[in-house]
């Protein structure tokens, strides 16, 4: 019980809340976005994004979502697939169903058991921002 409480507390300390009514953009399950997507608010991705994805707000990538793009956001919660580099100013949470192929730069990183990550991680207390972007992502080698 104590452990559960500690975990819950930790999630609140590190995580962010994305209230449903405050989500500015929702990319639904059957929707495909192609190009350089930019937003100022919170973004929820359930479908497909190809190109690049930048938001000044928070990002939530749900299970089943497929992003082939470099991603920038204030905070992010990832439970879907991302092929590309991820730059997060605040905290990044990789859920158990997350599958990331790319480099990560973030201030706070939490990874749940079961999450898959192919790439380099840079986690530092200095805010991740412009100029700190990792090198362009290369396609991950297929594991044999």
């Amino acid at each position: 019980m104590a452990m559960f409480n500690a975990k819950e507390k930790g999630e609140k300390q590190n995580g962010f809340e994305m209230k449903e009514g405050q989500i500015e953009t929702i990319i639904g399950v059957s929707v495909k976005v192609e190009g350089d997507f930019k937003s100022d608010g919170d973004v929820l991705v359930q479908g497909i994004v190809n190109g690049s994805l930048k938001t000044k707000g928070n990002l939530k990538v749900e299970e089943g979502a497929k992003i082939k793009a470099n991603v920038e956001a204030a905070n992010a919660n990832v439970r879907g697939e991302i092929t590309g580099n991820i730059t997060i100013k605040g905290s990044l949470e990789l859920g158990e169903s997350a599958n990331v192929a790319g480099d990560i730069i973030t201030k706070i990183l939490s990874i749940e058991p079961g999450a898959v990550l192919h790439g380099n991680c840079s986690v530092s207390a200095v805010e991740a921002g412009v100029g700190n972007e990792p090198d362009p992502v290369q396609k991950p080698k297929k594991e044999t």
Binding site: I27, K32, V33, E34, D36
Partner: peptide, 14 residues
């Protein structure tokens, strides 16, 4: 078609 990206639906009845 937005300024820098396009959005299309994959669902047949949309």
């Amino acid at each position: 078609r937005f300024h820098s990206y396009t959005v299309s639906s994959l669902h047949p009845d949309h």
